[in-house]
Deep mutational scan, measured.
Amino acid sequence: SGVNQQQLQQLMDMGFTREHAMEALLNTSTMEQATEYLLTHP
């Protein structure tokens, strides 16, 4: 699906929903950016 499943699982383990985590990974290129994205786009 174009996203790193390991990163997706890590974000879900942090408490984010699958949909939200996927959106973040699709819009960013690193785990750090994805986390930042999730925190700034709740």
Rank of each mutant, 00 (worst) to 15 (best):
G2N: 13
L8H: 03
Q10I: 14
G2A: 14
N27D: 03
M22E: 11
A21T: 04
L8E: 01
H41Y: 14
A21N: 00
A34L: 04
P42F: 15
F16V: 05
R18H: 08
L38A: 05
E32F: 04
Y37F: 05
T17F: 08
N4S: 10
L11E: 00
Q5F: 12
P42L: 15
L39G: 11
N27E: 05
T30V: 02
L39Y: 13
M22A: 07
L38P: 15
T28L: 02
Q7V: 07
M12E: 05
A24I: 01
M22T: 14
L11R: 00
T35K: 15
F16H: 07
D13N: 11
S29Y: 07
D13S: 10
P42H: 15
Q10L: 11
Q10E: 09
H41M: 15
S1K: 14
Q33S: 05
Q10V: 13
T35F: 15
H20S: 11
L25E: 00
A24T: 01
G15V: 00
E36H: 06
L25A: 02
G2H: 14
E19R: 10
T28E: 02
L11G: 00
Q33T: 04
H20M: 15
V3H: 06
G15E: 02
N27I: 09
L39H: 14
E23H: 11
E23G: 05
G15K: 03
T40W: 08
L8T: 03
S29G: 07
Y37N: 11
Q5Y: 11
A24W: 01
M14S: 04
T17V: 10
E19T: 10
E36M: 06
G2M: 13
G15M: 03
M31R: 02
T28R: 02
L11P: 00
E32R: 05
Q33G: 07
P42K: 15
P42Y: 15
M14R: 05
Q33E: 15
R18P: 05
T28Q: 02
T40N: 14
T40Q: 10
T28S: 07
Q9H: 11
M31A: 03
T17K: 14
R18G: 04
N4L: 09
